[in-house]
Simulated assay, not measured.
Amino acid sequence: MLSREQIEAMIPHKGGMCLWDEVVEWDARRIALRADNHRGAAHPLRSQDRLRAVHLCEYGAQAMAVHGGLRARARGGDASPGLLVALRGVQLHVSYIDALPGALECEAEVLAEGEGSQQYAFRIRHAGDLLAEGRAAVMLQAVGAA
């Protein structure tokens, strides 16, 4: 539904730090995305030649950013820049993700939002198995604010 290039145009993360390859579907409350970059030797979050499951929190946060960009675009505007301020209830069901064959899949949904903040739940799966889940809160800046 939406390509990596289109995703990069909406979020501040570029190149290898843009973690999602495609948006599968979305509506005003939720988004589903897919990525197949977790095995890459050049993945920017790798350390000691491994990609730890804790980095799935960044995948979840970027899912929020993509969803915010899509929602803003649907309203005819730009998304407000956000700052991740909290992760809660994070559960990691694996230790590493770099050897998993096939794509990672994410669902993220809006739980609460106000003028200056948003809270989402995210779940990341591989081949139907839940890898990580949690909630993330973002503080939003007004578009054009310093």
Rank of each mutant, 00 (worst) to 15 (best):
M1P: 09
M1H: 05
S3M: 05
R4C: 02
E8M: 13
E8S: 15
A9P: 02
A9E: 09
P12E: 06
G15R: 02
C18L: 05
L19E: 09
W20L: 04
W20V: 10
V23N: 03
V23A: 10
V24P: 00
V24F: 03
V24H: 02
E25I: 00
D27G: 11
D27P: 07
A28Y: 00
R29N: 15
R29L: 06
R34Y: 01
N37L: 11
H38P: 12
H38N: 07
A41K: 04
A42G: 14
P44Q: 13
R46W: 10
R46Y: 07
S47N: 07
Q48C: 04
L51T: 10
L51H: 10
L51E: 08
L51N: 12
R52N: 11
A53F: 12
H55D: 09
H55Q: 11
H55F: 15
L56W: 05
C57E: 13
E58T: 12
E58L: 13
G60M: 13
A63Q: 11
A63N: 11
A63R: 05
M64C: 14
V66H: 14
G68R: 03
G68P: 00
G68E: 04
R71N: 07
R71I: 00
R73N: 02
G77T: 13
A79N: 05
S80K: 12
L84R: 07
V85M: 08
R88M: 05
G89H: 14
G89K: 13
G89N: 12
V90M: 04
H93E: 15
H93M: 09
I97C: 04
G102I: 03
E105Q: 12
E105K: 03
E105R: 09
E107A: 14
A108R: 07
A108W: 00
E109P: 01
E109K: 09
E109F: 05
V110K: 06
V110P: 08
G114V: 03
G116F: 10
S117H: 10
Q118W: 02
Y120V: 14
Y120T: 12
F122T: 08
I124K: 05
I124D: 00
R125K: 12
R125Y: 13
H126T: 10
A127V: 01
A127Q: 15
G128F: 05
D129H: 13
A132T: 11
A132F: 06
A132Y: 07
E133F: 01
M139E: 06
L140Y: 08
Q141R: 14
G144D: 09
G144Y: 02
A146K: 04
